[in-house]
């Protein structure tokens, strides 16, 4: 679990991630990702495969074994980079309260 806290200094890493969500991150972006991708199992964003390699729903993990994974069927992706960026923005907002699209506009 990361103790790092996001600040405006990290907006440049959001820009870096948006440009290449599936690339190899800089050390600064990796630190941001360690925070955003960390955290407990409960509520963790995942992708639900609707069609392998082609279509995914957003999903969220439950806390315990035996409980179903929540499938958010109204949110669908056809591109993994798009999915990564969408989840990045959601986590950024949950972590800072900031709307990343507005911050970067």
């Amino acid at each position: 679990m990361s103790r790092y806290r996001l600040s405006d200094e990290d907006l440049k890493y959001a820009v870096e991630f948006r440009a290449n969500p599936l690339g190899t991150p800089s050390p600064g972006l990796q630190r941001v990702l360690n925070l955003l991708r960390g955290g407990p199992k409960k509520g963790k964003y995942v992708l639900i495969v609707k069609e392998p390699f082609r279509r995914w729903n957003l999903g969220r993990m439950p806390e315990s074994r035996g409980e179903p994974i929540e499938i958010i069927s109204e949110i669908e992706y056809t591109d993994l980079a798009e999915a990564e960026w969408d989840v990045f923005k959601r986590r950024w907002k949950e972590s800072t309260g900031q709307d990343l699209e507005q911050e970067l506009a």
């Binding site: 991150p25 960390g38 995942v46 992708l47 993990m61 409980e67 179903p68 994974i69």
Partner: peptide, 28 residues
């Protein structure tokens, strides 16, 4: 993929849940 929250960090991308993962989660 389903019990270890750090899997997303070590794989560097969102974890993808296939039908067998959904099954294993509800059928431990």
């Amino acid at each position: 993929g389903i019990d270890v929250p750090e899997t997303e960090i070590v794989t560097g991308r969102l974890v993808q849940m296939n039908p067998i993962d959904l099954f294993m989660q509800t059928h431990p």
